[in-house]
Design a protein around this nucleic acid. Structure first.
Lengths: 193, 193
DNA sequence: TCCCTAATGCAAGAGGATTCGCGATAGCAT
DNA sequence: ATGCTATCGCGAATCCTCTTGCATTAGGGA
């Protein structure tokens, strides 16, 4: 047999991939143009040219679809910076994150994910996000190998990332570079103690 | 004329108040028993004994209804802790906040607020956050008057509150007392530098 | 107490959302 | 090249959410 897994008779290539790409692009465009509650499966189907039934069959619900789109975006992954110092890495990472989240599109994604967390049929594991977590852990490990005092991953998420999400989700003020720099300094102060 | 406002020919008393109370109680009970997505207007109507059409007419949508319920809860107000020390105040506040946000009702409310930032349907005033901000500022002022090193309000929001919201909105793990205590210690370490 | 009308109950129904069956298309292994 | 079958397109059927018109009930001021 050619395949190592006889149970997996899937066809991820060719047309299936094109359908997925078309649907993803439609979701992205629609989310940029309309409030999330207006982005319905019917609208996605019409915009993408893919039949409604197909969308329902493959993704089941809108939150699950958005989750898949986010996963697709994260698959391409922005490489975690490697500047040679923890301060440099953190700064690059935080500034980019603030910029991405400050984008209307980024806000929509975060809101969509937050909405999806409440939905029962979404895969809450999200290996892509965990993968991102692994990348960050990698960054911290590099710092530790250099002998720099480095925080735990959980602390980094709480100190640097959480306030950005807080701004996006609960205020009208988007995160900016000034916030990113302030959060990084706070984090460095914490692990330098 | 007896009424000071001739345009307001409302009837907030008697039956209307009973209906509102019944619906509010039904929402609270259902949110405690079922995941939020199962708490539909139809279920609320059935549980409360109030007709569906009435619920639709008065509240229009489920988020708006939840918003009204929480507004009712917050009208009763929660007292500001005053233990005599910043650590005591922060601990009391953070533990209570973690507990409240860990509640299904609290989580749903936070989601409703996050949703309401972009939704035209819900009242975007959010007096509860402003109220809470005033309470916290009061707490910090007391600490400053005692001569204790106290953080800025913004820092407190970012360091203590943001990670709790992060957990509620973006993870499946609710905030708990352990998290609250850890965040308070972190905040105290930061303003003791 | 009496009257006006806001608020509710009731039921029919419009408009979407979701599913299902079946034939057609196109990966992909041989 | 060829056959198997996963996947898709299509349209109809079904289910459900939400709205609307009308009759009835009950606040609350005179």
């Amino acid at each position: 047999m050619g395949t190592t897994d006889p149970a997996a008779k899937r066809r991820p290539g060719g047309r299936t991939a094109r359908v997925r790409a078309a649907v993803h692009q439609a979701v992205t465009e629609l989310l940029a143009e309309h409030p999330p509650e207006d982005v319905t499966i019917a609208a996605v189907a019409q915009r993408s040219g893919v039949h409604q039934a197909t969308v329902y069959r493959r993704w089941r619900t809108m939150p699950a679809l958005v989750d898949d789109v986010v996963a697709g975006v994260l698959e391409q992954g922005s490489p975690v910076p490697d500047t040679g110092s923890l301060r440099g890495d953190l700064t690059a990472f935080a500034v980019k994150a603030a910029h991405d989240l400050g984008t209307p599109m980024g806000a929509v994604y975060v809101r969509a994910v937050a909405y999806g967390v409440a939905a029962p049929d979404v895969d809450t594991e999200r290996p892509e996000i965990r993968g991102r977590g692994r990348d960050l852990q990698e960054m911290l490990d590099r710092a530790a190998r250099r002998g720099e005092p480095a925080p735990e991953l959980e602390e980094l998420l709480e100190v640097v990332l959480a306030p950005m999400y807080y701004r996006v989700l609960l205020t009208t003020e988007p995160p900016d570079e000034a916030l990113a720099l302030r959060l990084v300094e706070r984090q460095l102060a914490l692990c330098a103690r």
